[in-house]
Amino acid sequence: MTADGRPLLSRAVHDRAHLARLLPDPTGGRPVRVLTVDAQRTVPVQQGASGPELMWDERPELPVGGIFLGEADGVPYAAVRGERSPTVSGRPVDRWAGLRDLGAELGDLDAGLLAEAIGILEWHERHRFSPLTGAATTVERAGWTQRDPTTGAEFFPRTDPAVIMLVHDGADRVVLGRQAAWPPGRFSILAGFVEPGESAEAAVAREVEEEVGLRVTDIRYVASQPWPFPQSLMLGFTARVEGSQDIRVDPTEIEEARWFTRAELRTPDGLLAIPPSISIARHILDLWMKDGLPLSPR
């Protein structure tokens, strides 16, 4: 987590400059730094003195197809989908890497811009046609809206709310589960998508009961983090088990789930792997390990 306690992908510091999107040239005629994102969602990286840094292509203007991300210290930033290149603005690329690989190591500015770039480009990739008529949409507002050319209807970037929750017993145990597709030994806290007409808190209770057969109460919000794979916003919660603590796994949801103590997570046996630091799951687990969550006892 960050020094001020935020999840690592929630530390954007740039100005999104949303009003500038309405202008014919959101950059105001200034040179713009453009990040190329390839089809595998990776970006060019160079190794700086204090860690990896994104490699921004200096352009005199916003390129065709470029999406305006905002600005920082008077410098406009944009992203564009493109192919890998061995150089950027004449500088050799050290490697191409993705947000999962880089997010925890990047500085605040680069981390926030990269999360935004991945999210908005993924939206464009998946929403190129009008859901009303099937017509190919036109892109407007510097990449922040799409329009149906036949009806004039506007469509805005979509974010899917998902809940992720640390289920505890009010004392020293939490429930962790694993999906069959994960690497052997990988466990994490539970998660699921919010359904239409449902509050986030109701989604927490429903998902926990569906996945592991437990009823929960005392549902408390912790933090949120964008997760643009492709377009989720993770809403983090804690929830205390009420009643039976017997886990009944739904095999269509997860492969395995069980209770873990703090001692087990502090001294893993080599067969247990918890989420990487880039995820909000790890953020919430780390807070629980340090008694840094507002948990109420039974």
Rank of each mutant, 00 (worst) to 15 (best):
D4S: 15
G5I: 10
R6Q: 14
P7A: 08
R11T: 13
D15L: 07
R16D: 12
L19I: 03
L19D: 13
R21Q: 10
L23W: 09
D25Q: 01
T27N: 01
T27I: 01
G28Q: 06
G29K: 09
R30S: 12
V37P: 10
Q40E: 14
R41Y: 02
R41I: 00
T42K: 13
T42S: 14
G48W: 04
G48A: 11
G51E: 09
M55P: 10
E58W: 02
L62P: 07
P63Y: 03
V64L: 11
V64M: 08
G65D: 06
G66C: 03
I67M: 10
I67K: 10
G70D: 08
G74K: 04
G74I: 06
V75R: 15
Y77W: 11
G82R: 06
T87L: 04
V88K: 00
S89A: 15
V93R: 03
D94S: 15
D94H: 14
W96S: 00
A97P: 00
G98L: 00
L99W: 02
G103Y: 00
G107Y: 06
L114V: 09
E116W: 02
E116H: 14
I120H: 07
E122W: 02
W123G: 10
E125P: 01
H127T: 12
L132S: 14
L132K: 13
T133G: 06
V139G: 07
R141W: 07
A142M: 11
A142Y: 09
A142V: 07
T151S: 15
T151H: 11
P157G: 08
R158H: 11
P161S: 05
P161M: 04
L166V: 05
H168E: 02
L176F: 06
A180V: 08
W182Q: 12
F187K: 13
L190S: 11
E195N: 12
P196L: 02
E198I: 03
A200L: 14
A200V: 05
E201I: 05
A205D: 12
E207D: 12
V208K: 09
E209F: 09
E211Y: 03
I219S: 11
A223T: 04
P226M: 07
P226I: 08
P228R: 08
P230M: 03
M234L: 14
L235P: 01
A239K: 05
R240N: 07
T252D: 12
I254F: 03
I254R: 06
E255S: 13
E255T: 02
R258Q: 13
T261S: 15
E264L: 05
L265K: 01
R266W: 02
R266N: 12
L271T: 15
L271W: 04
A281F: 00
R282W: 10
I284G: 09
L285S: 02
W288N: 11
D291W: 04
P294C: 07
P294W: 04
R298H: 12
